[in-house]
Amino acid sequence: MDERLIRALFTAYPLNTFPLYLLQIIGVICFIKLPREKKANIHYLLPFFILSFTFFYETLGAYLNYNHELKYAINAYLGNTVYPKFNLFLFNIANRQIGTILYLILIKSWLHPSKKKYITWMIYIFIVLALVLQITGMELLYLQQPIIFSIGANMILIASGIYFTGLMTHKAYLDRNPLKLLSFWQVTSMLFTYTLTYISSVALIYLYEVNPVLGRALSNINTVMTIITLGVLTLIIASPLLPNTFEKEPFYESN
């Protein structure tokens, strides 16, 4: 195995990677143990996919920090010769674009069928805006993308608002205890992740230039919140194996 990959996997960023590995291992074990029909159910398959996808891009990101040739080559291909050490292109594509879309789809899966169309439209609008901003060169793929991030974050916040509206108005949700609903905790953790990182993400470069210590401290909020969000995703995957611990989600076609 590539020595750089081993270094990236085990020594690069222990605060980020070890909890992620643990969650990924638990997630894989729980997903394997799920009955066949649940494995094919979007309510378990999507959280597992998001967890695995996060594990994949975080590992790839760490690896690129050791495999400089590959990183420089990708940056050069994208036209970034000024900051060849950045691997923001990966973060932008995986976290800020695909990640936002995946989380929007996740929220959509918990909504009442009549509300799903709003999220579908939000996803289309987000994709179009992200493409337009990048193709026109307003936000380059290999640099910070505050506009795309803020559009995505706002959409997540609106989608969370739609979820909470359903929680308070729909009979199926009124019959349940929200504190025992994993969808409630998932949406809450996403809400906090995007809110707490909103300002710091938009002003990250500025913060790193002016006060790197504070910049790193604020970016750690993102790391911790991401791990909490992934933790709830793992619990969703494990929920069928923990009977009587959580309440059944409404609007699930088969669980």
């Binding site: 909470f164 929680l167 308070m168 929200p178 809450t188 809400l191 906090f192 300002i199 604020l218």
Partner: peptide, 19 residues
């Protein structure tokens, strides 16, 4: 950041109370 965090906490707690 703190204000937004506080605002969201209030929002979620209010949601639970209203629920």
């Amino acid at each position: 950041t703190l204000f937004l965090g506080g605002l969201m906490s209030t929002f979620v707690v209010a949601m639970v109370f209203i629920h």
